[in-house]
Design a protein around this nucleic acid. Structure first.
Length: 366
DNA sequence: GCCCCATTCTACTCTTCCGC
DNA sequence: GCGGAAGAGTAGAATGGGGC
């Protein structure tokens, strides 16, 4: 049988966003700290501390927790649940996600209840009774927890209060914003205590170089990626905030470019070319998750910006049956929160000036 | 027991109102 | 023009009653 060996990639999936490596270099200290908090809670459920992880994007926060969760599932009786609050950002959504995972992993024979037509309290009571019966130790990770606030913040209070029902539950909250809980209801803040804070700092150039080298070693065929290309990529990735995702995405694109030109060698030129696109990798992944309404709205914003009243007129002209003024503002506020646009108020009591933070081609390519 | 349909219940979306 | 709050509207699922 004919077998084809890729001349560029050896294990391309190493560069995919959902790939969790067996070893996370330069995050051993943080992983050890988080694991130790979880393990001591497992040994002594009376002394549970919630965990608050914060730091710049692309510094391995999510990868660390997913790495720890994999070990927890393999080696302990804990019941880890990972929830991305960008997608699941209501209290009902969070409780339903926990119940869904519980019935999938712990009680696979039980029918998963419907989400619609069931009261939140009813669903929460079901969660309480099932957790009580099963005696599992839930470790719930709320990634991008800032997207849960303020609408879904009540669920933090509810989940923390499970301990009053003698259910040992540990929350892990991940965010890029260290001060995310500053304006949260004091009642909710106090319910989350005690909290252990685990800060993640941006990678240094040397650390970035090593991380890229390891990825290159596993993902590419031997000798395909030039050393100068690795060094250049590490420097630029650090200048852009130390985001490993940019480096990973760039390597993937550069590999494809090297294949296209037929020389099967990744050079600095390939990296430069790939970087022009991958610097917007994060924005692109956010845009991919937007609802069709949000995409329609952002696609209408001109490259050179527009004042809100003018934009509302434009929107209504293009989508006469679309949302009204207040709702449009609400959607724009959300897009601003995602970092895709900037809303700057011009003058005292003046209108908002809306500006795109990413090139328009990001929306049109999807 | 099964099917159909109206009713009920719920979370979530969206509009309207009003004060600043 | 903006933003918070209240309430109406909507979609989806469960429930219950009637007819076969």
């Amino acid at each position: 049988m004919y077998s084809y060996e890729d001349p560029v990639f050896r294990q391309k999936e190493v560069l995919f966003p959902d790939y969790i490596p067996d070893h996370l270099p330069h995050r051993e200290k943080e992983i050890k700290a988080i694991s130790s908090i979880i393990n001591s809670a497992l040994k002594n459920p009376e002394s549970i501390s919630n965990i608050f992880i914060f730091g710049p994007p692309g510094t391995g926060k999510t990868a660390s927790v997913k790495f720890i969760f994999r070990k927890l599932e393999e080696e302990t009786a804990a019941f880890p649940v990972y929830i991305n609050c960008f997608r699941i950002n209501t209290r009902m959504g969070v409780v339903y996600a926990v119940i869904f995972e519980f019935f999938r992993k712990v009680r696979p024979t039980r029918r998963i209840p419907s989400r619609r037509g069931v009261a939140y309290d009813e669903l929460f009571d079901l969660l309480v009774s099932e957790l009580k019966k099963s005696r599992v130790f839930p470790v719930i990770c709320l990634d991008e927890v800032d997207h849960l606030l303020p609408r879904g913040s009540e669920v933090l209070y509810d989940l923390s209060r499970l301990r009053e029902e003698s259910i040992p539950v540990q929350l892990i909250m991940i965010t890029n914003d260290q001060f995310v809980f500053m304006n949260v209801d004091p009642r909710i803040k106090s319910s989350l205590r005690p909290v252990e804070e685990i800060p993640y700092r941006a990678y240094t150039i040397d650390e970035m170089k090593e991380i890229i080298r390891i990825r290159v070693e596993f993902a590419f065929q031997k000798g395909v990626v030039d050393e100068e290309a690795v060094e250049y990529l590490a420097e630029v990735a650090c200048e852009m905030g130390g985001d490993v995702r940019i480096a990973r995405e760039t390597l993937l694109r550069a590999g494809e470019l090297a294949r296209q030109d037929g020389k099967f060698r990744v050079t600095v030129e390939h990296i430069k070319q790939a970087l022009s696109e991958s610097q917007f990798a994060k924005a692109k992944s956010i845009v991919e998750q937007l609802s069709s309404k949000e995409r329609k709205i952002i696609s209408l914003i001109p490259e050179n910006g527009i004042f809100y009243p003018e934009f509302y007129e434009l929107y209504r002209r293009v989508y006469p049956s679309g949302v009204r003024d207040r709702m449009l503002r609400y959607y724009l506020e959300r897009l601003a929160k995602y970092g895709l646009i900037t809303m700057e108020r011009r003058g005292i009591g003046g209108s908002y000036f809306i500006r795109l933070n990413v090139p328009r081609r990001i929306f049109t390519q999807l």
